[in-house]
């Protein structure tokens, strides 16, 4: 009897779980579904009221934004900037993170705090002075400017995540290597860095996503030749017409690469999100 009564309860709980999970999935995925379908509609169809769910898809918006409006070039710009700044952030950040994790020195905590604080600074604080300085040295509208300014939020992320990662590498390995007379840099390069790779990968993924998605600096510091994809998407927002299809096609083109990238990397991503749990 007891078992019989418990069984439907478990079933219900299972059913409840399935329902909740499906709800979560729908909640997360539906906007994407809508974005992609809208991008396949003609202008007249996109502005139909009430919205149409079944229709004959057209790729006209994609061909138009890619060939006529130059979205392809901005995607390449975004790629160049995001990859370069990520590599730079890793190259600079890993040794610093290692030092914060392994070396003893005065003011360590304050230094760590200062690094992290850079992540908190609103881009609006730096955008204009940076613009004024950059115009003086003639670097406006170049990839380099974005690569450098994106370090202000990528470097802290790399340092934050990697410091924790280096701390979790067994210290005995360091001691053994030191006894053999290895230099600090060799220990870092050959022993600790390979072991900290998961953390490095996660911070690289984050750097890439943040840089790929950034808008404010891109709006202020680029105009034409270095314009990134998000800045491009925004520039369709002329109050004169609502090219919903084109806007959504551009949006899809921007979002798809980073989505694929993060789905592939989602295992590392979720692991990396322990955020200093390993202390």
């Amino acid at each position: 009897m007891k078992i019989n009564r418990a069984m439907p309860g478990t079933h219900n709980r299972m059913g409840m779980q399935i329902l909740l999970l499906l709800l979560i999935i729908t909640f997360c995925v539906f906007p994407f579904y809508w974005m992609v379908t809208t991008s396949l509609k003609t202008q007249l169809l996109a502005l139909k009221s009430p919205p149409v769910w079944l229709f004959e898809p057209t790729f006209q918006n994609y061909t138009e934004v890619l060939t006529k409006d130059g979205v392809a070039k901005t995607l390449i710009n975004s790629l160049i900037v995001a990859v370069s700044t990520t590599m730079l952030a890793i190259t600079l950040g890993c040794p610093a993170a290692y030092a914060l994790a392994r070396f003893e020195f005065r003011g360590k905590r304050d230094l760590w705090f200062w690094f992290i604080t850079n992540r908190m600074v609103s881009p609006i604080v730096l955008a204009l002075p940076f613009f004024l300085i950059v115009r003086k040295i003639g670097l406006l509208d170049t990839h380099l400017v974005l690569i450098l300014i994106y370090l202000t939020f990528n470097l802290p992320i790399v340092i934050w995540i990697c410091t924790d990662q280096f701390r979790s590498v067994p210290f005995e390995l360091n001691e053994a290597a030191m006894l053999e007379g290895a230099s600090p840099f060799r220990i870092f390069r050959s022993i600790c860095l390979p072991l900290a790779m998961p953390g490095v990968a996660v911070s690289a993924i984050f750097s890439f996503i943040f840089s790929w998605n950034e808008l404010m600096y891109a709006l202020v510091l680029t105009r034409n030749s270095a314009k990134t994809a998000p800045a491009m998407a925004v520039s369709f927002m002329e109050g004169y017409n609502l090219p919903y299809g084109k806007i959504m096609a551009t949006s899809t083109l921007i979002v798809i690469p980073v989505i694929i990238f993060s789905l592939i990397a989602s295992k590392q991503l979720v692991r990396g999100l322990t955020m200093g749990a390993v202390k």
Binding site: I209, A229, S251, V255, I259, L263
Partner: peptide
């Protein structure tokens, strides 16, 4: 993973 990777402007 989808929402958090989506470009904020989008």
């Amino acid at each position: 993973v989808l929402p958090m990777a989506t470009t904020y402007a989008v």
